[in-house]
Design a protein around this nucleic acid. Structure first.
Lengths: 143, 143
DNA sequence: TATTGTTATACTCTATAACTATA
DNA sequence: TATAGTTATAGAGTATAACAATA
């Protein structure tokens, strides 16, 4: 059973997280990648090509929702589909060359508001705290 | 200029934050309060009655967007409007008795998924890390 | 029967643009 | 002219439900 401090921390974390996400979305205008798209692409970059169902499980969304996200990335030529070698139901998505270049561009410091803010406004120790906290947040959302 | 570590931290924080917010939204079904609504109510509880414009500035959204959020809370009888004493343009929103009771209910541990997860799955030191990180996130989003 | 993916529909959150009323 | 609020419209992200194809 949570005590007062833990309830307050939950409220504060939710509010701060919401602001951070809003800020991130606001900082990715027009043709750029949205936070959701970046998250999906980051996973494909780290773990390799993946199916919609696998991405949905990893990102904690419904397959239909992931279908929309992946579909928009496919439309933009950032992801390309290919059939699964043995399972005819599955469709594997991988990064295209154009996608790889797009991501390189996005990762450039100028476009990357959050990375700049972290570098300029947090001490190294605070950056370590934040990195640790990101891991803790990952642990909390795991079912 | 951010280095590789800082860029990676930014990406990781964005991804973890996104998952946390999705999980929070999924954990507040039907008649409950959404994270955005909770954030606004928390601010009114802490700082007292406020106008739409003031809430919009504090929460980093446009006044029109805040108008939608506040409007939905007003429809549900959680917030009530009253005219500003001296400025005829402004409308001040405050918590109703029904709103106060709603929030009490939401804050009960059973409904509060995140508080329970924090209490059960993080050590006291990890909780302190997370609390500190929430403050850092607040600082980062400040313009 | 279970899983993968698609299509249709709807809700929340946020945005921009254009307007009215008040200062 | 500037600020507070409203209304209209749109887009992103997510959800549920119903379906087809494959395992």
């Amino acid at each position: 059973m949570p005590d007062k401090d833990q309830e307050r921390l939950a409220a504060e974390l939710g509010a701060a997280g919401g602001q951070l996400m809003r800020r991130l979305r606001a900082a990715s205008p027009q043709g750029e990648l949205t936070p959701t798209q970046r998250s999906v692409l980051g996973r494909i970059i780290n773990d390799g090509p993946a199916t919609i169902a696998a991405l949905a499980r990893a990102e904690l969304v419904r397959p239909q929702s992931m279908g929309v996200t992946v579909g928009s990335l496919e439309e933009r030529g950032i992801l390309a589909r290919s059939p699964h070698p043995t399972d005819g139901r599955q469709v594997v998505f991988s990064l295209t060359e154009h996608g790889r270049r797009t991501i390189e561009t996005v990762r450039r410091a100028k476009q990357n508001w959050l990375a700049v803010a972290i570098a300029e406004r947090l001490t190294p120790e605070e950056q370590r705290t934040l990195a640790e906290a990101a891991g803790l947040m990952r642990r909390l959302v795991q079912e």
